[in-house]
């Protein structure tokens, strides 16, 4: 490779091989180390076997579904609208949430990329994150 080419190329960025590949290798090994450590100190749980005739007192989903679970419970406050309301509204809320996530790039027309130059969308995003975290913790504690 000629010296000139090499210079241009260095301005463009870091070589993928070997520099970036080494970084990636380190990330992979650190991830593996964390995984194995977790497995050794917190083995995968072994719950009692399924018994369809004995309903446990507290049935909760995995942590990543707790926010959805708690949102469905919150929807029960809408029962004054009728018996249909809580469940249908709860589902609707979730559907709207996922739809909004899918459509985000088409709803947010602001071409700016720096977070400081798009306060509205970033604000909504942070609010959504806080809501998600709050519902998850609430679901965990309830």
């Amino acid at each position: 490779m000629s010296a000139k080419l090499e210079k241009d190329w260095r301005e463009e960025g870091e070589p993928f091989f070997p520099n970036h590949m080494l970084d990636q290798g380190m990330v992979v090994f650190v991830t593996l180390a964390i995984l194995v450590t977790l497995v050794m100190f917190f083995p995968a749980p072994m719950e009692p076997p399924a018994d369809p005739f004995e309903t446990p007192e507290h049935i909760k989903p995995e942590w990543y579904f707790l926010s959805a679970y708690q949102a469905l419970k919150v929807a029960e406050y809408f029962s004054f609208l009728g018996a249909w309301a809580p469940k249908a509204l709860g589902i609707l809320m979730q559907a709207v949430g996922i739809l909004a996530l899918i459509l985000l790039p088409f709803l947010d027309k602001n071409p700016e990329r720096h977070p400081r130059k798009r306060p509205v969308v970033i604000g909504i995003g942070i609010l959504a994150l806080i809501l998600l975290a709050a519902l998850t913790i609430w679901g965990k504690l309830s």
Partner: peptide, 18 residues
Amino acid sequence: WSQISYWATTVGTEVPAA
């Protein structure tokens, strides 16, 4: 097929019924 997986799935698969 543990107690928790059975019942969490029972509750979870009830959701689409709404």
